[in-house]
């Protein structure tokens, strides 16, 4: 599904963000990416969706080398990836419905199809009754759910989440995590970056541990 082959990334400042990272993800896996802030979690996710380019090595997505992808193909790559951000990146002057509908509008879907799929996505995250609200009227946890609904509305093959629970308290973070688990059970590959180890400790998921740009742990069977 996703395959990193000796990937290195150096920012223009000179400090290496990722060094010689190699791992691969199977389809339908749910994997967590941990490490302190500055360990390179975000950079790794940004490489997958074409926001950054590798300096060395290769990143393969379904066998396609996305580290050499042409600039004008990047939008089409991103359409297959659902992205969720810590600050959720919602449009504050659009309703919840419009926010979730944007990926479908970009694809030029018909209004009926948009309505159906947006409703389904909002139903899944439990916000079907908040469709006409604006993001500002929602709580932090609900806003993050809108972000998830937007990420899954286009039925992506993979979900990348960058600290989706970073700003949320434990109870709501757990709800969000449950939501990701439900999505994973429908067959979506999930790669989630988090520094909240307490949240994921009791679940037996694979954890990739980054430290200062190096992969120091790949625990397929976490004790």
């Amino acid at each position: 599904m996703i395959c990193f082959e000796q990937v290195s990334k150096v920012y223009s400042g000179g400090k290496p963000a990722l060094q010689n990272i190699s791992f691969s993800l199977r389809q339908g896996e749910m994997v967590f990416l941990t490490g302190h802030s500055g360990a390179g979690k975000s950079t790794l996710l940004r490489l997958i969706c074409g926001l950054e380019r590798v300096n060395d090595g290769r990143v393969l997505l379904n066998g396609l080398d996305i580290s050499r992808i042409k600039k004008h193909d990047i939008p089409f790559l991103r359409r297959h990836i659902g992205m969720i951000f810590q600050d959720h990146q919602l449009l504050m002057d659009h309703t919840i419905f419009d926010n979730v509908a944007i990926p479908l509008i970009i694809l030029g879907k018909s209004m009926e199809e948009i309505r159906g799929r947006v409703s389904a996505a909002l139903d899944k995250v439990g916000l079907i009754d908040k469709m006409k609200c604006y993001p500002i009227q929602l709580s932090g946890g609900e806003q993050q759910r809108v972000g998830i609904a937007r990420a899954i509305v286009n039925k992506p093959v993979i979900l990348l989440a960058d600290e989706p629970t970073g700003n949320l308290d434990d109870k709501i973070a757990r709800d969000i995590l449950t939501l990701f688990e439900e999505l994973n059970q429908t067959g979506v590959t999930v790669l989630m970056a988090t520094h909240n180890l307490g949240l994921i400790r009791q679940n037996h998921y694979r954890i990739l541990n980054l430290s200062q740009g190096r992969l120091i742990g790949d625990s397929k069977y976490c004790e």
């Binding site: 449009l91 944007i102 970009i106």
Partner: peptide, 16 residues
């Protein structure tokens, strides 16, 4: 600019 950024992240082409 926020809208533009989000559009880019979601996969809007430059033309869009």
């Amino acid at each position: 600019r926020q809208t533009i950024l989000v559009m880019q992240l979601i996969g809007a082409t430059e033309g869009f």
